[in-house]
Each structure stands twice: as structure tokens, then as C-alpha cells.
Design a protein around this nucleic acid. Structure first.
Lengths: 207, 207
DNA sequence: CAATAAATTAGCATATAGGAAATATTTCCC
DNA sequence: GGGAAATATTTCCTATATGCTAATTTATTG
């Protein structure tokens, strides 16, 4: 049988790489200077906090040297920044004023054997969250071949009907309209409608 | 006047730092080895892809040397990984099997002058998303002192009633139950109820 | 167990990062 | 504008990362 993934249809939140062939300047020096100045620190002060010499800091900021990883650690430590943040593109390059409306029922349909998804806000790329409404057709846990499992975290709100949420490490729990659940999605999970009519839920996934 | 923040009540998704005083091993070598092996690459192959010498790679993996930042760049480039990911804590150390249920109406209340929030899943720390239901008391944009604005992205689903969503760079848009909106939260935004009864919405914020 | 591949280590040469002090630059105050 | 102090940059020396080659050790496989 085809072990499909009833959940998170086409969740290809492309992880950045892929097409981008550009080597990316990634001006660490400039970033560092911004951070230091935003903290109103002089090189001397930054030196004391990080344990790196004034001169070294200067050189790094002016991109005259390529800091050692230990140096980067000292920087991150002393200046209270975490490394991913240090290398992440400046926020400004990021999302600024995007907005997308999805009218009721106008989402992108995506039916499976157990769920009937309606993907929301589909024409927005690179979002942090993937929201969708789902009508739960399954009536038994056996309707699923196996646990649904994927990266990230999931928020679930019951909009209509009654259902049971099966999770790998807990007993099944019954939920009614208005109830919500937050869980780690790498833990197996599955929804089953309990009422006559299919339950309707809102799902939001974040990686 | 107290310029409060009607939105995102107490959103203190602590950014990792703060209390944690531990210097954090951050075993880059181990991480690198994992990545290389997950790609089924030999040191020789990795060497060719990255332009770093076999021996150098070995030393890095065994934490005998602290790679230069340029070396790290070559690594990221050659192995198709982006730097933040490289330094991010291994997923396994992260959320594994957490789960928290919030029954309807049992969230944590958090009233403001314009909104009446009900925070959901509050006893789960370090989540990627912050969900809450909000009853919109505001009846005019003037009820807000200024735009609400914060980091991250926001998903909004109208549960009951009618409202207008004001956003900084767009014309106000009317929404009814079932409609949803996804937008960048650093763009000013505010909700205003249009119907007699206060509108009820679900909000999910991700940084 | 043998044979092969892969990984680690060693030794050396070279390029480059890191620290201490000197020099240059900016800021600020009179 | 002219010092004086603060700040940043450069210089010089030492420490260390990187590349190369080759030897040794450690899996893998038949």
C-alpha cells in the first residue's frame, strides 16, 4: 500500500540552499561592527568581554583576518549573541511587508485518504509557519498505515466536531470544538473523527 | 500615556541566552562528522568538494584544530549546508515528545484595552509558535495608540464575528469567520471588530 | 585471516590568526 | 584651531591553522 503522508502536504519549506549558487559575501566583519556598536561598546570593552585582543577585533571587523572558530565562540559568548543569529542574513533582507488573505473555503485543496486539507496562504513563500484547515475523514486509527511524523512543532485547534488525537507517547485524548493542542511533530500523531460528521481542525506547522 | 502592547502578550520567547551560563561545547567537529556521514562521503570526497585537505578535515572533526572562518565557509559551501544550520543545536537535543492540551476557555487570560487574549499552551516553554485566541474589543483604529509591531510572522484566523484588519502598507480589509491572513508582524497591524458582538480570532505568532 | 579502503597521525613548510605595543585617527573640550 | 583623551588601526612577533606527503592505525569486506 502506498504509505502516503496525510499530514503536511507538500511541505517543502525549502531550506534556503538549492538554487542559490552565489557564494554570498557574508560580511561577518560588518555584522560584528553593527552588533558591537548597537551595544555602544568600544573595541576595548568588547575586548574585555570577549577575551579577544583589541587589535584582533579591529582586524576582524575590517575583514583583514578570518577569525578562528574559537574566536567566533568567544565573540558570541561575550556579546550575548548566538552563532546562528550572527550568520543569519540581516533581518532587513527578510520579510518586510508581506500579507496574504485567504477567504473562507478558498484555500488550496489537498485530499488524502484520511484527511482533506485546505492549504492556506499558499502563495506566500518562505514562511515560518504552514497553516491549513483539515477535515478529518478517518474514523479509526487503523485508517493510517503508520504514525504521521515530521520535523517541527504543530499547533492544532478544533473548529468543528469531535475527534480523538492519537499520539505516540500518550493515551489518545478526545477533543471538541475550541480545544487546542501543541505538540512536537516528530512524535507520531494522527486524528480520528468521533462524531457523525467529519471534524474540522486548524493546523499550523512550524519547523 | 502608557504605550502598551496589545499584541503578543508577554511574548518572551527567550532567545536562548539569558540564564544559561554554560559555555556550551558546541562540538562543531562532531556535527561536521554527522553531516558528512549522513551524506555518505569519505574524507577524500569531502576534501574534493570543500577544497580542504583530508588531514585538515580529520583534524577538524576530531577537534584538534579550530577551523578558520573561511574554512567553515568552504565547508558550508561544499557540503550544501548553511551556516546557521551548522551551528544550530542538533535537533535531537530539541523537542522530542512534548504535548500540551488546552481545553476550550481554559487558556491563560491576558486582557488589554483593545484585545482580550487567551493564551494557549502556556506551560510549554521554548516553543516555536505562540498561539492565542483573542476577542477584539476595539471598535476603531484610534483605540490603538500606535501600530502594533514586533518580530516574526503572524497567522490569523477569524473564528467568530466580523472585523477589519488594518495593516501599515495596505488598505484595511474586512474579514469574516473562516477567513485567514498571514503577514509579517514587523509591519504595523491592528484589529477592529465590525459587528455588534466582539470578533473572536485565533492568532499564531512565530519568530 | 587477508586484502583493501578509510581514517588518523606525524613531520615539515607556509600562510595566516592572535596578542602586545606603537602609531594613527577621531572626539571632545577649552 | 589646538591640544588631550579616547578610540581605532597598524606593526611586529609568536602561535597556530592549513596543505602536502607519507606512515600508521583502524574499519570493511570477501
Amino acid at each position: 500500500m502506498s504509505v502516503e503522508q496525510p499530514d503536511m502536504p507538500e511541505l517543502k519549506i525549502e531550506s534556503g540552499s538549492g538554487l542559490q549558487t552565489n557564494v554570498e559575501p557574508l560580511q561577518l566583519g560588518k555584522r560584528l561592527r553593527e552588533i558591537r556598536q548597537s551595544l555602544s561598546l568600544t573595541l576595548e570593552e568588547a575586548s574585555q568581554r570577549t577575551g579577544l585582543a583589541r587589535s584582533t577585533l579591529s582586524k576582524i571587523e575590517n575583514e583583514q583576518i578570518s577569525p578562528t572558530f574559537t574566536a567566533v565562540q568567544k565573540l558570541a559568548n561575550g556579546l550575548q549573541i548566538d552563532i546562528p543569529q550572527l550568520f543569519a542574513k540581516p533581518r532587513s533582507a527578510m520579510a518586510s511587508g508581506r500579507r496574504v488573505l485567504t477567504k473562507s473555503g478558498e484555500g488550496t485543496p489537498h485530499p488524502t485518504s484520511t484527511y482533506e486539507h485546505e492549504l492556506l496562504s499558499t502563495d506566500l513563500a518562505r514562511k515560518k509557519m504552514v497553516p491549513f484547515k483539515t477535515r478529518v475523514r478517518a474514523r479509526s486509527f487503523d485508517d493510517f498505515g503508520d504514525w504521521v511524523r515530521h520535523e517541527g512543532e504543530e499547533f492544532l485547534l478544533v473548529l468543528e466536531g469531535e475527534l480523538a488525537l492519537y499520539t505516540e507517547f500518550y493515551e489518545p485524548v478526545a477533543m471538541v470544538a475550541g480545544d487546542s493542542m501543541y505538540y512536537d511533530a516528530n512524535m507520531g500523531h494522527a486524528l480520528v473523527s468521533l462524531s457523525e460528521v467529519d471534524a474540522l481542525v486548524l493546523w499550523v506547522v512550524a519547523r
